[in-house]
Structures are given as structure tokens and as C-alpha cells.
Simulated assay, not measured.
Amino acid sequence: MSADLTAWGLLAAGLFAALLRATAPILLAALGALVSEVAGCVNVALEGLMLIAAFFGVMGAVQAAHAWPALAPWGHAAIGAAAGVLAAVLLTGLLAFFHLELGADLIVGGIAINLLAAGLTVFLLAGWVGDKGSTAALASPALPALHVPGLAGWPVLDHWLNGDAARGHHLLIWGAFAAVPAVWLLLHRTRAGRWMRAVGEHPAAAQGAGIPVKRIQYLALFTSGALAGLAGVYLSLGYLTLFQADMSAGRGFLALAAVFLGARRLAGTLGASLLFGATAVLTTRLGWLSLPPQALQMLPPFITLCALAFAGRRFSSRNPTT
């Protein structure tokens, strides 16, 4: 009986580790989308920001390894991660400038950023690596995993806390879930967070109360870009150890959907991100069925549409006059 329980516990731990891996990039980007949405700025550019960060994360790590060979591999990866996040923040700054200073439509600007990132990464990939598909020819380091010691005598607990290979969960997996209380503290326990919520509710009233509306929206967009950048860095320096063209694979749009499915609330955004992560795991686990791969690839967006339709129906039933 105990052997059966251990086997089931190990199986559940493996599924739990896969869920965390699939959820982390969606959750990081969704938290960024939530921060900007609270301040009244819908960041549609998450997909492009993740791509840019993933590309410059790998290239920064590779260049750091060439420039400082004596540095530990995790140091090269850390430099690459900083380069990726910086690239995402700079691209967010471009979006913010066109919207806040020149009056460009934020949605159209976000779509333009997505198209720019998709083309620019392939263009730079072909020019720097000589391959339009991936950086597989380059030796790219990875950010480290965090291992909880002292659990060798408890194999099930060891697998839950350290992953199915007992090496530990990736640094940015822990970071993604640690970012949830950090975002809560930002929005509810800091002056900047209270100002963001005030600006998102009524910009004119916030301006009349002396709140620097434009500065707060810049801050919200930059925070959103940094979190989306961390999501992209995780994809190329954690989930994989290379960059692939279009490797964000719609996760930025899923992150944006998670915010609206979660009713623009932190707990709801976390729950929706876990739902989308579980859908990705389910898609992978169903690979043994004799189904066309296109049908499996349709599963995450189909579940997303169903969830959004259900959420919209609930909202309409609660607010019949809207």
C-alpha cells in the first residue's frame, strides 16, 4: 500500500513540476499585464517583449561567455538575463513614448511591437548566427535551479519541492510565484501602487488630485515590460537553453487573457495562469494519442476562448444593465 502511495505521489510530483514549468512564463507576463492594466494601459505587446527578451538573453549570455571566460556559467546566464530584460524594457519605452507623448493608439502600437519583434529577432538571428530557426549551434548557458537540501529521506517531498529530477525548480519558477505577493505589495501597500489604481479608475480625477498621471503610466508600462522580459528570459535560459523563432508561441496573448479572465484581480490572474499552464501540460500528455498535432495545438486557445466566454457570461449575468 505504501509503495502504491509513493508511486502516486511521485507521479503527482512530476505533473506538479510540469505545471510549474508551463505556468511560470505565462504568470510572469500576466502579472506585468495586470500592473499596466490597473494603471489604464493595456499592454498588448507582451508577445513581442517576450520574444525580444528571449533572443537578447541568449545572445547576451553567449557574448558574456566570450568576453569573460573565467566567469561561472551562471554568471554568463545572469548577464544574458539582464540584457534580455533591458531589451524588453527599452522596447516598452518605445511603445510608451509613442502612446503617452505622441498620442498613438496603445492597442495598435502593441500589435506593431509584436510584428516588429517577430521580424527583428529572425533578422538578427540570421545575421548573427546564420540560422533563421534557432541558436542551437551556440553553446548557451542556463540560469540555475534552486535545490531544497535535506530531503533525500523523503522521496515524494523531494520530488515536489525539487522537481521530478530532484535537481530543484528553476530560479525563475520560484521568482514567478514570488512575484505574486510582490505585485500585491506594489499595488496595495505603496504610494505608487495606489496612484496606479487611481489613474486606472479615473485619469482626470487623479490629475486633479495632483497625481502625475503620465509618470505613473510610464512606471506601470516599464514594470510590465520588465516582467514580460523575465518571462522571455525564462523561455530561453530556463525552459530551453536556446532561442527559437516565435518561441513565445502565444504565451503573451494567454497572459493578457489571464488578466481579463481573472477579472483584473491578482488571485484571479494567478488562477487563470495556472489554468493555461495546466492546459499546456495536458496538451503535452495527450501526445501519445493518435491525433493530428494540429488538433492538440488547438487545445490551449480553444480552452482560452471557452474560459473567456464563460467569464463574460458570468459578468453579464451579474451586471444585466452593461
Rank of each mutant, 00 (worst) to 15 (best):
A82S: 04
A83P: 01
G84Q: 12
V85F: 07
V85P: 04
V85N: 02
L86E: 11
A88M: 04
A88V: 13
V89S: 02
V89L: 07
L91V: 12
G93Y: 08
G93M: 06
L94I: 15
L94H: 00
L94D: 00
H99Q: 15
L100G: 08
E101H: 14
L102C: 03
G103M: 02
G103L: 01
V108C: 06
V108S: 05
G110Q: 11
I111L: 15
I111R: 00
N114S: 02
N114T: 07
N114M: 02
N114P: 02
L115D: 02
L115P: 08
A118F: 12
G119S: 12
G119P: 13
L120M: 15
T121M: 10
F123Q: 11
L124M: 15
L125W: 03
L125V: 04
A126K: 14
V129D: 00
V129L: 02
V129R: 02
G130I: 07
G130C: 02
D131C: 05
S134T: 13
S134A: 06
T135E: 08
A136H: 11
L138Q: 10
L138M: 13
A139F: 13
P141F: 04
P141W: 08
P141I: 02
P144D: 05
H147E: 13
P149M: 09
G150L: 07
G150Y: 10
L151A: 05
L151G: 08
A152Y: 08
G153D: 15
W154P: 02
W154I: 10
P155Y: 07
V156D: 05
V156R: 05
L157C: 09
D158S: 14
L161E: 06
N162I: 12
N162Y: 13
G163R: 03
G163V: 08
A165C: 05
A166P: 01
A166K: 10
A166L: 03
G168W: 12
H169F: 11
H170P: 06
H170Q: 14
H170S: 06
L172W: 09
I173L: 10
G175F: 10
A176V: 12
A176W: 07
F177I: 15
F177A: 08
A178N: 10
A178M: 13
A178I: 13
A178T: 09
A178P: 12
A179S: 13
V180F: 09
V180Q: 03
P181T: 07
P181N: 06
A182S: 03
V183Q: 05
W184K: 05
L185H: 01
L186D: 11
L186A: 04
L187S: 03
L187T: 11
H188G: 00
H188M: 09
R189P: 00
T190M: 00
R191F: 05
R191G: 01
